[in-house]
């Protein structure tokens, strides 16, 4: 495992920690899109089907379990926890996220690395992850006061994919057979969706002003 991949995994983990900190400690999910969180739970469930079949490393297994458990528990908190769910900004979280699922599934059936159940589900999870942030970005645009933890959460989530791209470039040159067009193209699309957010996030940090996205 190279440094980019490890750094990518760590920022991904950090984003989850930041979000859990907000939900678990502050008991608030204000500014967080339940739609995006539901899509992530689906992404991990579809991608980690091989969890108990295909052992890669202890690190890999533990991380998969962490992402599965955290994504489902975040959805549970936002839907069921009696204090947290009251802070959910339902009126602004209106993205029709169900309409992302079917096209991603259709694309996975058409474009996959092998036409098997697990490979189609893997491709589906890659496509869905690329667009899963959309409801969250829409909600951020509609949120007047984006708190620091929410901004950091989205920033780390975006940074994770940037680092993964560097990891793929590194692996492409060091592992001759490492070619995964599906994850590369989807990963680049996913990263581009963050471009706008990154710009405003860095500007707000540089100028030391509160993060706000133009509507």
């Amino acid at each position: 495992m190279n440094a980019f991949r490890l750094a990518g995994d760590m920022t991904h983990l950090l984003s989850v920690v930041v979000l859990l900190l907000k939900i678990h400690t502050i008991k608030s999910c204000a500014g967080i899109s339940l739609k995006t969180q539901e899509l992530y739970a689906l992404v991990f469930a579809a991608r980690y089907l091989d969890l108990f079949i295909h052992f890669i490393s202890l690190y890999n297994t533990v991380m998969k379990l962490v992402f599965l458990a955290s994504s489902f528990s975040i959805v549970w908190y936002m839907r069921r926890h009696k204090i947290v769910r009251r802070t959910y900004d339902k009126d602004h979280d209106t993205f029709r996220h169900h309409f992302l699922v079917l096209p991603c599934l259709a694309l996975a059936l058409l474009i996959n690395e092998r036409f098997t159940f697990r490979e189609v589900m893997w491709a589906f999870s890659i496509y869905l992850e690329a667009v899963a942030i959309l409801p969250q970005l829409v909600l951020l645009q509609r949120t007047r006061n984006i708190d620091n933890l929410t901004g950091q959460y989205v920033f780390f989530l975006g940074a994770y994919r940037v680092l993964y791209i560097l990891n793929w470039i590194y692996r492409y040159f060091t592992e001759p057979h490492f070619v995964h067009w599906i994850s590369w193209v989807a990963g680049i699309v996913q990263t581009l969706l963050y471009a706008d957010f990154f710009y405003y996030y860095i500007m707000s940090w540089k100028n030391n002003v509160k993060l706000e996205l133009p509507a």
């Binding site: 995994d9 091989d50 890999n60 690395e113 893997w122 592992e175 490492f178």
Partner: peptide
Amino acid sequence: ETSGLGHDEL
């Protein structure tokens, strides 16, 4: 590299 199409990333 892992056997088949084993995806070793998260």
